[in-house]
Amino acid sequence: MSGYYRWLGLPVEASGYAHSIDDGLLLIHAAMLAIFVLWGIFFAYLLIRYRRKDGVPAKRDSGHGGWGSLVPDFIVMAFEIGLIVLYAIPVWSRIKVDEPMGKVNTIDIVAQQFAWNVHYPGPDGKFGKTDPKLVSFTNPVGLDLKDPAAKDDIVLANEIHLPVGVPTLFNLSSLDVIHDFSIAPFRLKQDIVPGMMIPVWVTPTRIGTYELFCAQLCGFGHSLMHGRVIVESEKDYQAWLKSMAPAQAASQPANSANSF
């Protein structure tokens, strides 16, 4: 994994919006460093300049009017307003509020202690009905096999295949407790709450294999709950889909014991 980290120690950028998050991190850390260094110099100066000396009494008045010390506040406030208006709200809205336009690849993610079930609609593009009452060891997402749309669905455990350059919409749900769908190179993170279906999208931009992991404490096996995200070219992706489709009328069991 050499070359995986840039100077700020961040993983490689592998999604459409990763750079806008990284730009923010870079800018804020540069500002933080500048504030801390300037401030540290002033602090050190005060400590040396005003150390106790015999015969030199303290001055009650620091020579700055009380309100003069609020100047750093106004600078910080202006910087923060700028960050909110020009950076935070627009970028957040683009990532979390807006939905992608045009051709979208939709995948259902069903999390459970301690595995990821990945549900593709298959060639017909329609998800089969699911029902939690049907969930079993061999049918981890509770697919209703009587539904015709379910016949060609693909269900995988701990492995996601994605075509590069195509926006992908994940519908996140959980069978048991709160999990968190997290892929660091995509700068993607979203809690999954049982009882809710939470959409989250990403456009993979870089071919490769990345790690999917749970970022919200979900029990004793939390740290073992991870999987693979394989981003491949459109051609390879279609080939993979074909290879899966015929055999996948029934589903593949998700195994709590991780096989990553």
Binding site: W39, F42, F43, L46, L47, Y50, R51, R52, K53, V56, P57, A58, K59, R60, D61, S62, G63, H64, S69, L70, P72, D73, V76, M77, E80, I81, L83, I84
Partner: peptide, 25 residues
């Protein structure tokens, strides 16, 4: 972001308090 403003004011005042002092370490 707003709550960071009084926090900065607190720290600034405490640092400025060193100014003109006769600091015992």
């Amino acid at each position: 972001m707003i709550i960071s403003v009084p926090s900065v004011a607190l720290l600034t005042c405490l640092i400025y308090s060193l100014h003109g002092g006769s600091i015992r370490f």
